[in-house]
Amino acid sequence: MTYILNKSLSGAAILLLSVTLLSGCFQKEKPTTLTFTPVYKEVALNCASNFSGNNEQALGVASTKWQYQQLQFFIHDVEVNTKKSGWQPWLMTTNAHQAENIALLGEECNREGHQDYWQLELTPLNETRVITDIRFTLGVPFALNHLNPLTQPSPLNEASMFWGWQGGHKFIRAELASPDDDWLFHLGSTGCKALSPVRAPKSECLYPNRVVISLPFTSQITTIEFDLAALIADIALTRANSCQSAVDEESCKVLFKNLGINTNNTDQSMLFKTNLKAQIDG
């Protein structure tokens, strides 16, 4: 009886060990987190931060304190450049802020139950690869941009980031306020032809207004800066200078230039930055 009991215990131990090993094999790896940090002249921002507009005296505008009320943007198609294999997709995980390899980053400050989302979650990278660059596209791809938001997964169902079926999503929504004024910038596709405003266009819009961003990068970098000062460079912050992507408005022309839209090189936007030198020195 003793032999049989020990044999049973031995078998149970082997079974338990096998289950443990198998569960380890199927256990998901922890996602890689890449934090986007809003900054203004190298100072980190949040909903409570005050900042002065760029060159207000030179632009003929009285100096004042501003805060952002909403600062959100879509990105998609994240890729990394490796020395051996070239550009490779870096896929996102799926959560309430990410779906279809599209993420909505940022925050809406005065919203009830306000939550920020600046941490992009991505699938783990192969650590043996030597990474030199990262790139992604600011905006929503045409194939998903004009679909009914009521039937789309989060974050593509976010009402405040949607113009309508014809225009699609707002790629950037930046809304600033001061004690006496306000300013906004809504970036999205324009010149979209459809049978009616509640119909999706069948072909790409005349002005897609998506921006491909390419930055130096290594697998040790964990932060990408969103530089609000670079976005509003040479813009006098007044309500009259707000922009909703009208191609003929002077303020929009300046903002498009700052973003690298309608330039010969779509990677010229200085809106996003990685501090590669600090990472190397560290």
Results as ranks from 00 to 15, higher is better:
1 M>I: 15
8 S>M: 12
9 L>P: 02
10 S>Y: 11
19 V>W: 02
19 V>L: 10
20 T>C: 05
20 T>E: 02
25 C>M: 03
26 F>Y: 14
28 K>F: 13
29 E>N: 10
31 P>E: 03
33 T>G: 06
37 T>F: 04
37 T>N: 04
40 Y>F: 07
50 N>T: 13
51 F>Q: 03
54 N>K: 07
60 G>L: 11
69 Q>T: 15
71 L>K: 09
72 Q>Y: 12
77 D>G: 07
81 N>T: 13
84 K>E: 13
87 W>T: 09
88 Q>W: 09
90 W>D: 05
90 W>E: 05
90 W>Q: 09
95 N>V: 08
97 H>C: 05
99 A>K: 01
100 E>T: 06
104 L>Q: 02
115 Q>L: 15
116 D>M: 08
120 L>R: 08
120 L>A: 09
120 L>V: 15
125 L>D: 15
128 T>S: 12
129 R>V: 15
132 T>Q: 04
133 D>L: 10
133 D>Y: 09
135 R>T: 12
150 L>D: 12
151 T>H: 04
153 P>V: 04
162 F>T: 10
167 G>H: 14
168 G>F: 06
171 F>E: 01
175 E>Y: 03
180 D>M: 01
183 W>Q: 00
185 F>T: 07
189 S>C: 05
190 T>R: 08
190 T>G: 03
192 C>Q: 05
194 A>D: 06
194 A>T: 10
199 R>Q: 14
201 P>T: 01
202 K>E: 14
205 C>F: 12
214 S>F: 03
215 L>V: 10
217 F>E: 09
217 F>Q: 08
219 S>F: 11
225 E>D: 15
229 A>I: 13
232 I>S: 00
233 A>F: 06
242 S>D: 02
244 Q>K: 10
245 S>V: 10
247 V>D: 02
249 E>F: 08
252 C>S: 05
258 N>L: 04
259 L>T: 14
262 N>G: 04
264 N>Q: 11
265 N>I: 09
276 L>N: 03
281 D>C: 08
